[in-house]
Design a protein around this nucleic acid. Structure first.
Length: 496
RNA sequence: GCUCGUGUAGUGUAGUGGUCCAUCAUGAAGCCCUCUCGAGGCUUCGACCCGGGUUCAAAUCCCGGCACGAGCACCA
């Protein structure tokens, strides 16, 4: 049957799994311009990481450019932080491994936006509206025009001057884009483009009295930068529609637009920069790099690898579904990247000191153990056994016969362990341990939700280099935070 | 309420009319290997929101439900 109707269906290839990002619609190699536009009111979070990764990856794929644009046109509700510009640039660079192709700040391009606003008023597709927000909402919800809508260009332009010279106070006037009050979607009806803000801006002070809103500023700037593809959250779908109406007025062509849905990480919930800022100010967290926080700098500090993060976001891809993923998934990506370059070290929590007794009174004075079990890293760790005292984890003492990893089968008797064989003779449990001469006190800090859990123990004192990630055998990965010859080793937990 | 969007295993994701009793990752369970509870290898578990329709054939197209999410700020 099938042979008659559709013969080629019979020898079609099995569909293969697409890897990497989907093709960008209407994209020509070498001509793609993308943008990533954060508000500089804090450093980048895991949520931003998606935008950074997807945009820069598409730029790579199409030999395109990424514009990093600081959307800092609100100094009141989400005031910019002066340092955040720098933070974001460095977070971006950490994650992508390179600088953005273009960096601009909306606040330094204000003259341009105001010029376009004036043009809009002069050409009659915008107007200065003096209704209160509440009044306008009421009119808009009933598809009614407000009386400001039919002012002449001259009247609008003179009101515009009053807005700009500071004669009109905050909240008394707003510039609207004329669309139509009959649009089915109320959000699009004569939407506000610029409003008055007299508050001080951290970068340009009180130079401007009128500031554009996101939809206006972003629309103008995307045009000016020649942005060909906008990739944004789907919560901004109405922005696309508003901006498209503005582009029609200016007779410009709107970029291709793609959307992603909302991402939550089980362990963190959603990412609110302003929320974190408050908590840091209140002292709930110690700073933007507090290991409990989902900021990129906190993740970087803990030892997450930028390439692993990138792999993770590309694997999630670009879908409009709202998703909630587990940190475990990111950790799995991270482990696969870092494992082969992490040396092993012993860390004995809840340590118990015991005497060790060798066979026939003979004893070994040193022991060589691989830095990495599959020799991704050459060389050995040398352990000194001369003192004949070792640390074991209390819970491992419950078993009576265990094997000290990389050393010997032993029997546990009260405060003593005695070697039965250096060869491995049976399948007894293998535990990690530490000779006293190699042990240094260590504190492992584990972020757990909103809390910090501290575990004390004895750490293998062998080439502990600040900033390096080690795998604590039978425990998990951690980063060394203390200086190289500290008396107490500070470890920060990464993951299992 | 209005407007918009999304529904594939526990969690993500591939797949846009046939070879799909549906891909891959992660997860869980188990096994092998390894002197780590790590790495590697293998096995198993587990999904097309529901109901109609179109068609020889539907995860895929159409209609209707339902569920979830977002926008309806002089925030971004």
């Amino acid at each position: 049957m099938l042979e008659e109707t559709n013969p080629e269906a019979l020898n079609r290839q099995k569909q293969i799994r697409r890897t990497g990002l989907k093709e960008l619609p209407n994209a020509k190699k070498g001509e793609v311009v993308l943008r990533f536009a954060p508000n500089p009111n804090g450093p980048l979070t895991l949520g931003h990481a998606r935008g950074v990764t997807i945009n820069s990856e598409y730029a790579n794929l199409y030999d395109g450019k990424v514009v990093l644009r600081f959307d800092d046109t609100d100094s009141k509700v989400k005031p910019p932080i002066k340092e955040a510009y720098r933070w974001i640039e460095s977070d971006y660079e950490w994650l992508t491994g390179k600088k953005p192709d273009v960096i601009i700040r909306a606040s330094e391009r204000m003259d341009i936006y105001l010029e376009y606003a004036e043009k809009m008023l002069g050409e009659g597709f915008g107007y200065v509206c003096k209704c209160s927000a509440a009044e306008f909402k009421k009119l808009r919800d009933n598809s009614e025009e407000c009386s400001c809508r039919n002012k002449t260009e001259q009247e609008n332009l003179s009101d515009w001057i009053l807005m700009n010279d500071g004669s009109l106070g905050e909240g008394t006037a707003v510039v609207r884009v004329k669309t139509s009050v009959n649009l089915p979607n109320p959000a699009l009806r004569d939407w506000p483009a610029l409003r008055i803000q007299h508050s001080l801006h951290p970068m340009v002070g009180n130079k401007y009295k009128v500031w554009p809103l996101l939809d206006f500023q972003s629309a103008i700037e995307d045009y000016l930068q020649g942005v060909t593809h906008i990739i944004r959250g789907k919560d901004l779908m109405d922005s696309t529609r508003k901006q498209t109406l503005l582009y029609e007025h200016f007779d410009w062509e709107y970029p291709e637009t793609l959307y992603w849905g909302r991402v939550k990480i089980h362990e963190f919930g959603s990412f609110s920069t302003s929320g974190m800022r408050k908590d840091i100010e209140k002292g709930v967290f110690n700073g933007w790099d507090d290991p409990r926080l989902p900021t990129l700098r906190a993740l970087q500090r803990r030892g997450f690898d930028a390439d692993a993060m990138k792999d993770f976001w590309i694997d999630l891809g670009l879908t409009q579904k709202d998703i909630s993923v587990s940190l475990q998934t990111i950790e799995a990506f991270n482990s696969s990247v870092i494992d082969e370059r992490c040396e092993r070290r012993a860390f004995v929590r809840d340590p118990e000191l015991l005497d060790i007794e060798f066979i026939d009174g003979n004893y070994l004075s040193t022991l060589s153990i691989k830095r990495h079990p599959t020799s991704h890293i050459e060389g050995d760790r040398i352990w000194d056994l001369i003192d004949r005292k070792i640390y074991l984890e209390k819970k491992d003492l419950l078993k009576k016969e265990i094997r000290l990893k990389d050393f010997a089968d032993v029997e546990i008797k009260k405060q003593k362990v005695s070697v039965q064989s250096y060869e491995r003779l049976d399948k007894r449990a293998i535990v990690h341990w530490l000779p006293i001469s190699m042990a240094k006190k260590a504190i492992l800090t584990i972020p757990e939700g909103d809390k910090i859990v501290i575990q004390e123990g004895m750490m293998e004192d062998f080439e502990l280099i600040k900033g390096s990630i080690v795998q604590l055998e039978r425990v998990g990965y951690a980063i060394i935070e203390s200086e190289n010859n500290s008396d107490i080793i500070q470890l920060l937990w990464l993951h299992g």
